[in-house]
Design a protein around this nucleic acid. Structure first.
Length: 422
RNA sequence: GGAGAAAUGGCAGAGUGGUCGAAUGCGGCGGUCUUGAAAACCGUUGAGGUGAAAGCCUCCGGGGGUUCGAAUCCCUCUUUCUCCGCCA
C-alpha cells in the first residue's frame, strides 16, 4: 500500500498517475487524509491521558511508601476516571486505524511515469519482438491435438480425477515438465539466484503482504478449515520471507528463485483462452524475486527482463515484450513487462511471463525495510517475474516444433529430457 | 492427538509488581594506542507514533484481564522444546 505521508505530500501526482490506471482516487485520497488527521488527534489525546496516568501512578507509589494512604486514595479517583477515558479513546483510535488501513488497501500502486494510458490488454505497447515465426505445414495442429496424438497430456483424465484445468502429464510429457523446471532453475542459479522450495499454502498475513489479499480473494483457493490459501504464485512465500525484516544495505540485491505448483481459480475465464494448456487451475512455474535498493530497482527490472529474454532465446521461441498499459497493470505493480511467445498452430501470442517492479508498495505492507549506516530504516523495493511459467511454453514448443517425424525437443532441454524427439 | 516446559533487544542471557526500554556478555559501529592490524581501554549501539525541537506515548511472542501501577500475576491463542501415541 501507499504511505500516508507520500499521499499527503504528493496528492496531485498520485491523483494524476492513478488516472492512468483508470482509478479515480479523489474521494479516497481525501478520506485517507481525513482519517489520518483523525488518527493523529486521537493518538495525541490518548498519549496525554496515558502521560497523566503514568505520572499519577508514580505519585501514588511514592505516597504509599510514605504511608500517606489517604492522599493516595484521593488521587486514585482521578486515575479511575482516566482509565475510562483511555479505554474510550483507544477504541475510537483502533476504529479509525482500521478504517484508514481499509482505505489504503483500496488504493492501487501508482504507475511508473513510463506506463502508457489504456483500458485493456489491447492498449499494451509492443516494445520489442524477436525470433522467427515458424511456417508450419498445412496439416499442423494445435497442441491439444498433439498431446492426444502422442499421449503426453491427458486433460480428460484430469477432469475425471479432479476437474477441468487439472491435467495429467504422462511419459515424455511428464519428463518435459521436469526438464523445463530444471532448465529454468539452473539458468536462474547461474544468474546468481538462490533457490528456495517453499510451502504451497500461505496464511492470511502473507496474502496481504504481497497484495493478493484483499484484492484477489476470489482468485485463490481458500482452505477455510485452516484459513490457508493455495499459492497462485511462489511470489507470495518467497517475498514474504522478508515480511517484518530490516535488511542491511549491503544485503542488496537479494535474488531468490523458486519452482512451485501454482493454483488459480480463474473464475470468469472461458472460450479459446482456456483450451488445452492455455489456462489451467494448477500449473508449474519458476519464479524469480528480487529485493533491491530503491535507487537501483529499475536497473534490476531490466536485468530480470534480460534474464527472461535469454531463456526464450535459448528455447528458440519467437517472443515479444509488451509494456503494460495502465488498464492492464496489476493492482500492486508500478511497471510491468509481459513476455509473449508465438504459438504457431493457434496463430496467437501467449503470455508466458510478467516482470514487475512493485517499488515500495508491497514493502510498505510487509514492513520490509533496510538500514544504511546512518539514519532511519526505509522501505525496500520488491520485484518479481516468471522465469518461466510452463504450460504455454510447452504449448508453443509442441506447436512450433511439430514435424512429420514427431516433435523436436530444443537442444538446451535434451540433456534434461534424455530424448530429442517426442 | 495427550502430558510437561518455555517465548525478553542482532545473538546469548538476567529480571524483585513501582525509578525497567530493560543488567551482563558477545557481536556491530566510533575512538585512543599502532606504520598497519590484533590485543587492551573508552564511548556508542532496537523499532514505531507525535512534535520544529525538547519532550511525551507505545512495544519484553499475539490478544484479553487483574491493579493506582504489569516484562513480572491471571485467562486465551500461536510458536518452540521434551516425553508419549499415531504416521508418509
Amino acid at each position: 500500500m501507499l504511505q500516508v505521508n507520500y499521499i499527503r505530500e504528493n496528492r496531485e501526482t498520485v491523483l494524476e498517475r492513478l488516472k492512468i490506471k483508470n482509478f479515480d482516487a479523489k474521494e479516497i485520497l481525501d478520506r485517507v487524509i481525513e482519517l489520518d488527521d483523525n488518527r493523529k488527534a486521537l493518538q495525541k489525546k490518548l498519549d496525554d491521558y496515558k502521560a497523566e496516568s503514568n505520572s499519577l501512578a508514580k505519585q501514588i507509589g511514592m505516597l504509599f511508601k510514605q504511608g500517606k494512604v489517604d492522599e493516595a486514595n484521593q488521587i486514585k479517583a482521578r486515575t479511575s476516571e482516566l482509565k475510562t477515558l483511555d479505554k474510550e479513546t483507544k477504541e475510537q483510535l483502533e476504529q479509525v486505524k482500521e478504517n484508514l488501513e481499509t482505505a489504503l488497501f483500496e488504493i492501487p500502486n501508482v504507475p511508473h511515469e513510463s506506463v502508457p494510458a489504456g483500458k485493456s490488454d489491447e492498449d499494451n505497447v509492443v516494445v520489442s519482438e524477436e525470433g522467427e515465426i515458424p511456417q508450419l505445414s498445412d496439416d499442423a495442429v494445435p497442441h491439444w491435438d498433439l498431446t492426444n496424438k502422442y499421449e503426453i497430456i491427458d486433460f480428460d483424465l484430469g477432469s475425471k480425477v479432479t476437474g477441468a484445468g487439472f491435467p495429467f502429464y504422462r511419459g515424455k510429457g511428464a519428463r518435459m515438465q521436469r526438464a523445463l523446471i530444471n532448465f529454468f532453475l539452473d539458468e536462474a542459479i547461474d544468474a546468481g539466484y538462490l533457490e528456495y522450495q517453499t510451502p504451497l499454502m500461505v496464511n492470511e498475513a502473507s496474502g496481504y503482504g504481497t497484495g493478493q489479499l484483499p484484492d484477489k480473494e476470489g482468485q485463490m483457493y481458500h482452505v477455510t478449515e485452516d484459513n490457508l490459501y493455495l499459492i497462485p504464485t511462489a511470489e507470495i512465500p518467497v517475498t514474504n520471507i522478508y515480511r517484518d525484516v530490516i535488511l542491511k544495505e549491503e544485503d542488496f540485491p537479494i535474488k531468490n528463485v523458486a519452482y512451485s505448483a501454482c493454483f488459480r481459480r480463474e473464475a470468469g475465464s472461458y472460450g479459446k483462452d482456456v483450451r488445452g494448456l492455455n489456462r489451467l487451475h494448477q500449473f508449474d512455474k519458476v519464479e524469480i524475486v528480487q529485493i533491491q535498493h530503491p535507487d537501483r530497482s529499475y536497473e534490476t527490472l531490466e536485468e530480470m527482463k534480460a534474464h527472461v529474454a535469454s531463456l526464450l532465446r535459448k528455447l528458440n521461441l519467437p517472443f515479444r515484450v509488451l509494456r503494460l498499459c495502465g488498464g492492464d497493470l496489476s493492482f500492486t505493480s508500478a511497471l510491468t513487462f509481459d513476455f509473449e511467445v508465438y504459438s504457431a498452430a493457434q496463430k496467437r501470442w501467449l503470455e508466458v511471463s510478467s516482470v514487475s517492479n512493485f517499488e515500495n508498495y508491497q514493502a510498505n505492507r510487509m514492513k520490509l525495510r533496510f538500514k544504511g549506516k546512518e539514519g532511519k530504516p526505509q522501505l525496500a523495493h520488491t520485484l518479481n517475474g516468471s522465469a518461466l511459467a510452463l504450460p504455454r511454453i510447452l504449448a508453443a514448443l509442441l506447436e512450433n516444433n511439430q514435424c512429420a517425424e514427431g516433435i523436436k525437443v530444443p537442444e538446451v532441454l535434451q540433456k534434461y529430457t534424455g530424448f530429442d524427439m517426442i
